[in-house]
């Protein structure tokens, strides 16, 4: 194993619902800025986090148009995290559970994400400095 830490995160929450995802994204951001290698295994609802068809929307209650509302999208966060990791000499390898994708029709992910299986989680965890499993409730 190289001296640079490799961290694996396993997540299962979908976007726009839980603070857990925000916290995990913050953790990944810190690791990416340090140039760590990062593996993410997304399963269940988390496969929608990099879903390419997410779209910003206006908010009539706020009186905002699309630009003013500037609604955050998890697919954009993930793309930015991939760039940050790469810019700092690391890598963010995002794996979506294939069965979870098929169940949900979530095949259309942003570039840089790949399809996998729980075996990828096992392989990542086996080769990582540490693995954090973030379960849902």
């Amino acid at each position: 194993m190289s001296s640079k830490p490799t961290l694996t995160f396993s997540i299962m929450d979908g976007p726009f619902e839980q603070a857990r995802i925000t916290t995990v994204m913050r953790l990944i951001d810190i690791a990416a800025r340090r140039g760590y290698n990062i593996n993410v295994f997304a399963y269940e609802g988390a496969v929608y986090l990099p879903f390419a068809k997410q779209a910003k929307h206006a908010n009539a209650v706020h009186g905002h148009d699309v630009d003013q509302e500037d609604h955050p999208l998890s697919k954009d966060w993930i793309a930015a995290l991939m760039k940050t990791a790469q810019a700092n000499g690391g890598k963010l390898d995002w794996v979506n559970c294939g069965l979870c994708v098929d169940e949900r029709g979530a095949q259309d992910s942003i570039e840089g994400c790949r399809r996998g299986s729980p075996a990828d989680l096992w392989n990542s965890a086996s080769a990582s400095t540490n693995t954090l499993v973030v379960g849902t409730r």
């Binding site: 830490p5 961290l7 953790l27 690791a31 340090r34 760590y36 400095t129 540490n130 954090l132 973030v134």
Partner: peptide, 13 residues
């Protein structure tokens, strides 16, 4: 948290 993950602590969420 990232520091302690990187040092290999047993971590539980």
């Amino acid at each position: 948290v990232v520091d302690q993950l990187a040092e290999g602590r047993k971590a539980i969420w």
